[in-house]
Every structure is written in structure tokens, then in C-alpha cells.
């Protein structure tokens, strides 16, 4: 060990021994930013949820216990919106996983067009959301939409756009939501696939495993941590969805595609009730935690 290195190590030890506070100096600015931008609004939202503040009745919030929560839970549409949001989230994830896994496996093979295909796959992800929504609005159009024409010919939808029909509006938007998330999951899985050593497959082939067994016993278990983490990210994103539904149907016809995100928007802006909107947001957070924790636990257990 050189003298300089020795001095450095000694200094480091002596700082730790003093219980030095140096790291705080560096972390503080970042913590202030994180605190201001995320934690403070979270706590303010939590505070607002106990106020039942309505802009139509008072200029400023004042604490009113759990009134806002009671109002939200007594809303006749709340539980229907919960069911639709959970169904939408699960539906979105199923579409994403069912399409992205084989897609990633396909792109993992070395072919002359793999690079181009990988680039093309990203298009839905990088295209602005509003552009995509209007493109789908056209595809589903009841008069001239090609996708509607196909679905109608197959007898899956009626003469009107599936977005204008209560029985089909939710699943037709779920399809778009899933489609939109496929690229992100595909690329994440592809990166994970690239990290699996070729030797593992070669060894399994020597032991007599066929391709399916190789997929089932090697690929899938090794993809599981990535798949679990991505399901959490994409699931949370789908759970809080608002923009896609708002652009395409505004939650209609009737309440057939109203998600909790849409209800939250309407509670705040149409009903001018920040208190109830905050209570709904808090309930959504709790529900998201309830849905996410089992996935994280399962992934963590399997990793152990």
C-alpha cells in the first residue's frame, strides 16, 4: 500500500469513527428537491383528504374528519369504477405479457432484420399519446374505421364504433392500453434475455432438454424478476390511467369506461371538490399498494 493510499484509508476511518456528517451535506439539496416535489404534495394530499374542501363552499380547507372518505365510498359509481379499474389494469397487463414475452424471444434470435424490428417495436412507446389516441379513434370509427370494419365483419361489434357502445367501450380501450405498453416490456425482457449465458442452454441440451423445457426451466425463471418488476411498473401506470380514456370516451357511454382516474378528475374539476378528490386519491394509493405488494412478495420469494 502506498503512503497516499494509507493516509486516505486512515482519514476515511477517522471520519467514520467520528460519525462524520459529511454525506448529509451532499444529500441535503437532493432531499430538499425530492421532499418538495413528492413527499410534501403527498402529505398535503393526505391532509386535504381529511378536509372535505369544496371550492364552491369555502375559500380554504378546514379539517372535517373522514367526511370526504364517507362521501367517496357512498358514491353509487365508486365500486363500479373500482371493478373497472382493476379489470382494466389486469387486462392491460395480460395483453402486455402475452404479446411481449414471445416478441422478446423472437427479437432475441439473431436474424438480419432483428435490429430494424427492435426499432419498429418502439414506435407505439415513443409516439405522443394524443396522436395515438386520435389514430385509434379513426381506426374504431363506425363509418370509416378499418378496424371497426374488420371487427364488425367478424360479428364482434355492432354497426357503431366500439367506443360508442357501452358493452365494448372498456375492452376496446384496454386493448389500446395493452398495445401501448408492449414495447417497454419487450425491450426490458430483451435486455434480460441477453444476460442469460448461452452455456446454460448448452448444458441443458446435453442433459436432453428440448426447446420448450429450456424455455420453461431456464428462460422463464430467469425472466421472472424482470417480468415481476415490469408488471409492477406497468400495472401502477395502468391503474392510474386517465388520459387515454378521457381522450377516447370521457368515461362513457354512460359510465361504461369510467375508471378511478376519470372519477378523480371529475371530482376535482367538475365537482370542484379537492377534499373528496384527495380522499379518492388516497384510497387509490391504498388499493394500488394492496395490488402491488403480492406481486413484489412473489417475485422476492422466488428470487430467494
Amino acid at each position: 500500500m502506498t503512503t497516499a493510499a494509507l493516509r486516505s484509508t486512515t482519514l476515511g476511518r477517522s471520519r467514520r469513527a467520528r460519525g462524520g456528517t459529511n454525506p448529509w451535506y451532499y444529500v441535503t439539496p437532493a432531499m430538499v428537491i425530492v421532499g418538495l416535489l413528492t413527499i410534501a404534495p403527498l402529505f398535503y394530499g393526505l391532509y386535504l383528504s381529511f378536509t372535505n374542501w369544496s371550492l364552491l363552499h369555502s375559500q380554504s380547507p378546514s379539517l372535517q374528519g373522514i367526511d370526504a372518505y364517507v362521501a367517496v365510498l357512498n358514491d353509487p359509481n365508486f365500486w363500479g369504477n373500482v371493478a373497472r379499474t382493476v379489470g382494466w389494469t389486469i387486462g392491460t397487463l395480460i395483453i402486455e405479457v402475452v404479446v411481449a414475452v414471445p416478441f422478446a424471444l423472437l427479437l432475441n434470435r439473431r436474424t438480419p432484420i432483428t435490429g430494424t424490428l427492435t426499432g419498429l417495436v418502439m414506435i407505439p412507446w415513443i409516439t405522443p399519446f394524443v396522436v395515438l389516441a386520435y389514430a385509434w379513434l379513426f381506426l374504431y370509427d363506425g363509418t370509416s374505421g378499418p378496424l371497426h370494419g374488420l371487427l364488425h365483419a367478424l360479428g364482434l361489434v355492432g354497426p357503431a364504433s366500439p367506443l360508442a357502445t357501452p358493452s365494448t367501450s372498456l375492452w376496446s380501450i384496454t386493448l389500446i392500453s395493452g398495445w401501448k405498453g408492449i414495447p417497454f416490456l419487450t425491450i426490458a425482457l430483451l435486455a434480460s434475455l441477453k444476460s442469460i449465458p448461452e452455456e446454460v442452454y448448452e448444458a441443458s441440451a446435453v442433459d436432453g432438454a428440448n426447446r420448450f423445457k429450456g424455455f420453461w426451466h431456464i428462460t422463464l425463471p430467469m425472466l421472472r424478476p424482470t417480468l415481476g418488476a415490469m408488471c409492477v411498473v406497468l400495472g401502477v401506470q395502468a391503474f392510474y390511467s386517465f388520459d387515454l380514456v378521457w381522450i377516447l370516451t370521457q368515461g362513457g357511454p354512460g359510465y361504461s369506461s369510467t375508471l378511478l382516474g376519470v372519477q378523480l378528475f371529475q371530482t376535482f374539476f367538475n365537482q370542484a371538490s379537492p377534499g373528496q378528490a384527495a380522499a379518492l386519491g388516497t384510497l387509490m394509493l391504498l388499493l394500488a399498494i394492496v395490488l402491488v405488494v403480492p406481486i413484489l412478495r412473489t417475485t422476492a420469494r422466488r428470487n430467494d
Partner: peptide
């Protein structure tokens, strides 16, 4: 009515839409 904005957006149109589409 101070509540007119909410009534017209949240209620009347939804009722028309629901009957027109056969939902209710």
C-alpha cells in the same frame, strides 16, 4: 343555480347517452 355547471356535465348528458345506446 350555483350547481348548474356540475348538473349539466355530470348528469343530463349522461342520461341521454345511456338511453341512446340502450344501456338504460
Amino acid at each position: 343555480s350555483p350547481k348548474m355547471g356540475e348538473i349539466e356535465t355530470a348528469s343530463v348528458q349522461t342520461a341521454v347517452q345511456q338511453v341512446a345506446t340502450g344501456a338504460l
